[in-house]
Structures are given as structure tokens and as C-alpha cells.
Design a protein around this nucleic acid. Sequence first.
DNA 1: AATGAATGAGGTTTCATTCAT
DNA 2: TATGAATGAAACCTCATTCAT
Lengths: 190, 190, 190, 190
Amino acid sequence: MPAPHHPRNRGPAAAADNRAAILDAARRLFARDGYRVPLSAIARAAGVGQGVLYRHFPSRLDLAYEVFEDNFAVLDQTAAQSAGPDCFALLWRQLVEYTIDSTAFVEMVLDAGDEPPARVGAERLLGLFARPLARAQAAGLADPSWTTRDVLLLQHMVYGVIAASPVGADVRAGVRRAVELIDPRLAEAL
Amino acid sequence: MPAPHHPRNRGPAAAADNRAAILDAARRLFARDGYRVPLSAIARAAGVGQGVLYRHFPSRLDLAYEVFEDNFAVLDQTAAQSAGPDCFALLWRQLVEYTIDSTAFVEMVLDAGDEPPARVGAERLLGLFARPLARAQAAGLADPSWTTRDVLLLQHMVYGVIAASPVGADVRAGVRRAVELIDPRLAEAL
Amino acid sequence: MPAPHHPRNRGPAAAADNRAAILDAARRLFARDGYRVPLSAIARAAGVGQGVLYRHFPSRLDLAYEVFEDNFAVLDQTAAQSAGPDCFALLWRQLVEYTIDSTAFVEMVLDAGDEPPARVGAERLLGLFARPLARAQAAGLADPSWTTRDVLLLQHMVYGVIAASPVGADVRAGVRRAVELIDPRLAEAL
Amino acid sequence: MPAPHHPRNRGPAAAADNRAAILDAARRLFARDGYRVPLSAIARAAGVGQGVLYRHFPSRLDLAYEVFEDNFAVLDQTAAQSAGPDCFALLWRQLVEYTIDSTAFVEMVLDAGDEPPARVGAERLLGLFARPLARAQAAGLADPSWTTRDVLLLQHMVYGVIAASPVGADVRAGVRRAVELIDPRLAEAL
DNA sequence: AATGAATGAGGTTTCATTCAT
DNA sequence: TATGAATGAAACCTCATTCAT
């Protein structure tokens, strides 16, 4: 038995692993049980004590933000790698995917309320979409009247559709139709 | 002992009054403190015992549904009184207003999750909008491709914008712009 | 078996009993374990749920104050019944007794800190001692320079001696000697 | 790898520095936040790990005792340097000052409870005051009935006054009046 | 010898729900 | 039928203490 089942207190070296395990557990539980899932459940699922969770993430929002931070990282990469007019569509598609997958994201945003908006990523998204949107507009692939802030609104509208979807419903179909109502080009990207 | 010290139990006659008082208190507290307000607070504000609240509304959702039921009543009235092509715009405007005013509504919908969707009024809205939408479409006041189910989607999109609005933000402006992105005619109605 | 061992939820009728049981338990545990004893321990000892404790006494200070309220009641009685010059000595003796018995009282006072002073009884003691002190002074049984506020200081000095007494020490002897250092007449009363 | 990234472990030489830093931090935090301040806060303020704190001071009481040890050192010096009948007054003044400044001292004494009394310095104080008290008594500067143990009682009485002082109160004035009640000569020394 | 992360017990507090009266 | 106290299961958060590195 080379791997002991309950290695108590693996020391500071475990910090990075623990952090990753917490983020992983949080991602899963946020997705399964919603943003309000007990932090103790996350700690348990991650196999760490509650104190560790508090050390790494002093508040629920800190944790949630980090969970979604990964998403931003991928979006950043997409924005950096794709310089053509399609970049906007790619980003939009990914953003919608993340929004669908992380319904907890909606609740986090709801809950964040009076927190600095940058915390919940709005500003990051704005920066992310600015140039791709301009390029898409120049190429006639996006409505010329849209601002980057409108892209946020679009995402929020997608939120709404997802959030209001009954559990068994086909979320993707609903989102697609909703986006279609706004602009067929947006729906095509999905 | 002819004069009870605490004339508490006013008998069955009080039931209707209590019900109304609870609904009224719930409406206020949902608006002020959000959907998650303690039920005991609602009971207290209504001046009734907690048991009464449970008698009338076995669950928070039952209570919330009834609270918003009144909104539907007004919408019903609007639908009944206005037979012209403008009816759709009137209904839409009212629906958006209710959605904005009752942010708790958003949370309720989020929370309802796996409850029968009809519970949260979707079916009622469908029935409500069916004929007015048709009339508006016939008069060129609404996109001919829209179905009544699309109207629900539209409302959900408005949900999203409201839900994602930071605390101090101008919710109405955001909603208006969002609706504008979909169709200028919808925005005009607001 | 006429008396079930664990009668769960005895209903509102139990409120008064519960309140008394909580106060009783608190008095015992404060005396045994100090002011910082866990509230949950008090609830357990009283045989009630934690919620009940919170309903009756929203804060530790509320509970402590009520526990010591009884003491004041007895002092009030003494002050009311004894109109002679000995009244001061009687009150002083009782006050010292209570102070000795309730070391938690010291800690409560320590902990109260910035709470309204009336809460922790200082003002009550002032009012209680005013007239008896005057009578005792008139009869030459108390130092004429003492004010009622000085009586509080005297009590606090007794606090200090009690608080600093090692566990096994003869608290009473220490207090007596301390009081003797101040004024033999005060010590005689003990 | 000649240049370690984190020059953390400075080796045995750091032990003395660490000890001093911990004592310094403890003195400040005890004064600012009270005796119950988290040990982790002290470690942090001292810039050391928590383990180091435990190595040097196995318990909070050990730490507190050492913190106040310095006070004793000064008292020792006073006792050694002043051979006249005023020595008692000087020592008394210093003792009262330390007691006022370190309200945490009061709490420590309260908390020590069942620890060996010598730990909290009683015995040291006894030894310290023995000869100065005798000299003061011989010179008529102190009550001839006082024993050195009475001096401890006097200090405890001062404790009580300090401990019972409301947060905003003028502690010094209270202490002065209290001491005056005992003996004007003691108050003069302050 | 120092670090500082991990542990986990334990305290406080809050409510949804029940139920004696 | 109404009352509102009682229940008790969590949830949150905080440290004292340990221990791998």
C-alpha cells in the first residue's frame, strides 16, 4: 500500500495541491449545487480542513472568482491567438459556453452586488472584447452599433435565459434561440 | 374567566385577513431584503404567528408565487381590457416593470430550479401573450417570427440584465439598451 | 412511567421554565467555569436548544445581567427594609458576598467595557447606596468623606482581590484583610 | 544553488533576536488588543512563524509572564539602587504604573487562576518589597501594620479598579482615589 | 532551528419547521 | 384555528496546536 489513505497534515508542500483541489471541488460543487453550496462541503470534497479553505480564499467570492479565473485565462489565450475578424465569434462562443457551464457564475454575479465590479470580471471582459469586436464590425460580422459594454449586456441576457431554464430543459436550445432573436450572426457562432 | 388576556385567536374569520397581511408583508420584504428574507421576519411583519404562515403557504415558493400572482392579475386585466394591436406593447411594458421592481422575482426563479415551471407563471404568461402578440404581429408592431415562447425568452433576458446589474447601476437604462439590441420596437414600449 | 425522560418541544408553556432553567444553569456555569463559558454549554446544562437561549437572551451580557439581577433584587429589598444606620453595613456585606460568590461578575464587568454602564449595574448600585451611606455617615459608622461612587471603587477593589486570588486560596480571608486595610468598620460588617 | 530564494532560516543565531521580537510584539499586542489576542497575530507581528513562538513560549502564560518579566527587572533595579526610606514609594509608584499600562496584566492574572502563584510574580513582588517596606515603616512613611503580603493585596485592589473602569474612563483618577481611600501616603506616591 | 500551512475542534449565530397550548 | 416558543441542524468562522519541509 504505497499510498496512505489519510495522510494527515502533509505540510506546507501540500499548499499548492490543496489550492488546486479546493478550486476543483469548488468548480464541481458550484456547478452541481449552485453558488450557495456550503463552504464546508467544498472543503470536505477537496479533502482539506475548513481552515485551509479560509487561508486560501478568505471569502466565498474570492473562491468563486478564482474558479472562473481559469475561464478568463482561456479567453485571454483565444484573444491573443486569433487576430482575424473571426476572433469575436470565437470569444463569444466560448463566453456563452462558460456561462452555460457555470450557472453558479450567475449567482455569483448576483451575490457580488456591491463588490468592485472588476472583481467579477466585467472589466476584464470589456478589455478582452474591445479589439476583436472592432475587427468583426469592420468585417461586417457584427452590428456596427454594438459597444463592448453591449457585449456584457448580451452575456447577461444569456445569463437570464440560463438561469430561468427549468432543470430538465434544453438550455443550449434556449440560449441559441434567444441569441437568434438578437442577431443571427451571434447565433451562428454558437 | 370571561375576558381572555390575549385576544389572539380571532377565529376562522381572521384567515383571509391574515393571508392578505402575509402577502403584503412578503411583497415588501422580498423587495427590501430579497427572496431569502427569513420567513419569520415575514410572519412578524404581517403580525401573525409562524404557524399561520405555514398554514397558508407551505413553502417559500408558494408564498412567492402568490405574491407575484397579483402581478399576473394586473396583466390579465390589461389583456382583457385592451383589444387593439397595442395590447402587446402594454403587456410587455408591464411585464418588464414587474421584473425590474421585483428583483426577488429573479431570485425566486433562480431558486425554483426544479419546480414545475408552470408554478412560476410561465404557462400563464404564454396564455396571456398569445393573442396580443398575434395582433401586434398582424399590425407590424412585432416581429412576425416571434412565438409566445420567445416572449418568455425575452423576459428571461431582461432577468439576466437586472440580475447582473451592480447595486448602484441604472437598471432601467441597462434593460432599455438590452431590449434595444433585440428590437427597437420593444424598447419603445418601455 | 409518568415522566417521559425527553419530552421534546413542550410548547410555549415551557417558556417560563426554560428561562428559569437557563438562568439557573448560567449561574452555575458562570460560577464554575467563568464568564466565558460556552453558551452552548449553558444551553445543554439547561436542557434546552441553543435557539431557545438566543430567544431569551440575545447576548451573553443579557444573560449575565439577568443572572445577577437577582442579586440586585435582594439588595433592593435590604435597602427598603432597613431604615437605620446599619443599613449600609448590611448592604455592603451582601455586596461583598455576591462579589465573592460570582467571580464571573468580575469578568462580566471586564467584558462589558463599553456597554452602557447602567447595564452592568453600576448606576443601580449608586442609587442603592446613596441614602444608607448618608445615614451611616451621620451615625459615624462610615467615613464622612466617602461618596457613593467611592462605594463602587470599594467594590472594585474587592473584585481585584478576588480575581487575583489563586484557586485554592482563602478568598474570604483575603477580602477581609483588604477591606481592613481600607477601614476597620467595613471589615467588621463582613 | 548558492543563493536560496527565501533566506528564511537564519540558523541558531536568530533565536535570540526572534525571542526579543516576539516579546516586543506581545507587549504591544497585549496592550492594544488585550490578553486574549491570537497568538498567530503576535507571531505575525514579530515576523516569525508560529512554530517559533511555540518553541520559545509553550503557552500563552509563559509568554505573558516573560513580557511582564521586564517590568520586574526595572523594579529590581529600583529596589537595588534606592536604599532610603523612599524606596517603597518609588516601587509602589512603578508597580501601579505597570498595572495601569498593562491592562492585559490584569487579564493574565485573572486567567492564570490555578497556575502556581509564583508564576505570576507574586513571590517576586514579595521579595522585592520586603526590605523597602520595612524601611518605610521605620521612617513612618508606611502603615506599621502592613505586611509585604498586604502590598500584594493593595496591588490587587488596584487591579480591580482598573479592570472595572469603563472604556472611556479616567483610569488614573479612579486608581488615585481608590488608593487615597486606603492611605493618603500611598496616593501621594503616585 | 525556522517556517507557515494544515488540522479540526469548538464557538456563535441563524432559521426552517414542528407542535403544545 | 392561531400563536409563538422550542428544536436542532447547519452554516460560518476562528484559533491553538502540530508537523513536513
